[in-house]
């Protein structure tokens, strides 16, 4: 197949939270093997970007995605309101989907209006732009099991094509109720990156990005001990990238976007 042209990008800010990878600073050490993972799941972070009265009411995907987004912007030292953003989630909020479908099956007229408007896939991105007062465009997308790679591609395309950095967030939570058998996702995982130009002096990692036929090279895998920490989460395919960021140095990552096409990231040295 024809090779697409390649892009270069810089990573300016990183955030990650999962019950056994609680926050990027600890996650970095855990993913490098410098510190053991917690033996008990960490409590979910409080989404500090939201006004205090909304923090407790926020749905899980909203709370997790917004907090990751805030921390990535802070790490990049970028004004959150200035960044266009790309949010991705394979399933959206599975807890709300379970609530909606359970309520509809029993008495549709009992549906909560708040839960309904929080059920849209773009609720985390919507609440984020409201919380930080951003009128910049956002998007919210999914692409099945390849949701992370496809979210990353959209952020790369936007960051490369525009003159300014782009915020991306990718997250999924655990399935609830009857969804467990048909939308299998375990644990909670939220990540965010601020992507900018490779020439940015804020970049902590610089990558050359290209697309290639996936048949040529196997998908990158994180180390088994790290994979186990997010095993079963619908966004777990993000882990090789965050492991590479934790380790630093040079790397080559192959992230499938479908059975025939992969996103390839190579460190620019």
């Amino acid at each position: 197949m024809t090779e697409s042209r390649s892009f270069t990008i810089g990573i300016e800010g990183v955030a990650l939270w999962s019950p056994f990878l609680p926050g990027w600073e600890r996650a970095r050490r855990i993913l490098r093997g410098d510190e053991p993972a917690p033996t008990a799941p960490a409590p979910r972070p409080v989404p500090q970007a939201l006004p205090p009265n909304e923090r407790r009411r926020a749905s899980e995907t909203v709370a997790l995605a917004i907090d990751a987004a805030r921390l990535a912007c802070a790490a990049a030292d970028r004004d959150p309101a200035s960044l266009p953003c790309v949010f991705g989630s394979m399933y959206g909020d599975l807890a709300i989907t379970d609530y909606l479908c359970s309520t509809l099956a029993v008495d549709p007229k009992l549906l909560s209006p708040t839960k309904f408007h929080n059920s849209v896939h773009n609720a985390p991105a919507g609440y984020w732009t409201i919380a930080v007062g951003s009128m910049r465009p956002y998007t919210s997308l999914c692409a099945g099991e390849q949701s992370f790679a496809v979210t990353l591609l959209e952020a790369i395309v936007q960051a490369h094509g525009g003159a300014e950095p782009v915020l991306m967030a990718a997250y999924d939570i655990d399935a609830r109720g009857a969804l467990v058998s048909v939308a299998p996702s375990r644990l909670q995982l939220a990540t965010a990156l601020v992507l900018g130009a490779a020439s940015s002096d804020r970049a902590i990692a610089r990558w050359r990005v290209s697309l290639q036929s996936a048949r040529r090279e196997a998908a990158s895998r994180a180390q088994p001990r790290n994979e186990a920490l997010v095993a079963g989460n619908a966004m777990a395919s993000c882990l090789p990238l965050f492991e590479a960021l934790a380790q630093g140095g040079t790397c080559r990552l192959v992230l499938p976007m479908n059975p025939a096409l992969s996103l390839v990231l190579e460190t620019i040295s």
Partner: peptide, 17 residues
Amino acid sequence: LARAFDLENVAVTIATA
């Protein structure tokens, strides 16, 4: 639809209500 059309490039769903 990607299957129905037998396409092998990016297939993505945009869900912004």
